[in-house]
């Protein structure tokens, strides 16, 4: 069984590499998408079999199957109905789903009981914070592209997001040194809600025209959250898939910035006077 899992994960990893490679060349892009998708289906099915093979059918398995079937149907419907112009925000919405999944994973892991070492706690919380911030940030990016949310740029937002960034270091530090009189679950819940707020504040000041760049950045963050969760479970396909997306996503973000003739810092800072892209060329 372990051999089957390992071989399938290896095949799935190769399909991700080749899929990304093909996706970056115009003539092979379609094959790349199908290849990566097939690898993903293989990885999911093999994981399901290896986790539940030999056990009697439990409510857990039924719920998973139900969630997978509805998820597939809803995903197919959403992507079939979307118009060409609305595709970037749909990508952002799907990315939010992945970030949300990473956040919920962290919460469940905390509810299961204390992970053994402080190293794994740090992994757990990093994945959780990145996932949650990517979730709320992607939702805001989606709303901006859909025209439901305007840019907001105030000093207040800047200060609050800095305080939040510091708190992501301080709260786990206090917990690990036993200075915080709270349980693991409550600390995890506090961290995830702070991260949700941070994600919103991170995207709010950024101009609507820069959203594709931001979505690419958030996408790579989801990849990193996936990789961190993969390290926690010692699961190769999650690490590999997550890191590929994380690394490729950051490069893609920089390439997109170059294509728009903007610097990444100008985008994140929400500046328009940097290189004057607004005066369309």
């Amino acid at each position: 069984m372990i051999a089957l899992v390992n071989i399938s994960y290896l095949i799935a990893m190769l399909s991700f590499i080749l899929g990304l490679k093909f996706l970056s060349s115009p003539s092979k892009a379609k094959h790349g998408n199908i290849l990566a998708g097939t690898g993903m289906v293989l990885a999911v099915i093999v994981t399901l079999i290896s986790q539940f093979f030999g056990f009697s059918v439990s409510i857990n398995l039924l719920l998973i199957l139900l969630a997978i079937v509805t998820g597939t149907i809803v995903g197919k419907r959403m992507s079939d109905r979307v118009e060409m112009t609305a595709m970037p925000q749909l990508v952002s919405l799907f990315n939010a789903m992945g970030g949300g999944c990473a956040m919920l994973l962290g919460i469940m892991e905390a509810r299961l009981g204390t992970p053994p070492s402080s190293a794994s706690l740090i992994l757990l919380w990093s994945g959780l914070i990145i996932g949650a911030a990517s979730f709320s940030g992607s939702v805001i990016a989606y709303r901006k592209l859909a025209g439901k949310q305007k840019d907001k740029r105030t000093r207040m937002i800047m200060y609050v997001s800095r305080i939040l960034l510091v708190s992501f270091l301080v709260i786990p530090g206090l917990y690990l040194t036993n200075l915080l009189p709270l349980g693991l679950v409550s600390v995890t819940l506090i961290l995830s809600s702070l991260a949700l707020v941070y994600g919103i504040l991170f995207v709010l000041p950024i101009g609507g025209a820069d959203m594709p760049v931001v979505i690419s950045l958030l996408n790579s963050l989801t990849g990193i959250a996936t990789a961190l969760a993969g390290i926690l479970y010692n699961n190769t396909i999650m690490i590999a898939g997550g890191i590929f997306v994380g690394a490729a996503g950051i490069l893609l973000t920089l390439l997109m910035c170059n294509a728009m003739n903007r610097s990444i810092f100008a985008v994140i800072g929400g500046k328009f006077n940097g290189s004057g892209v607004s005066s369309g060329d």
Binding site: F16, L20, N219, L252
Partner: peptide
């Protein structure tokens, strides 16, 4: 496509 892969 990368976004879909991060769904792993």
């Amino acid at each position: 496509g990368a976004n879909a892969i991060s769904g792993v």
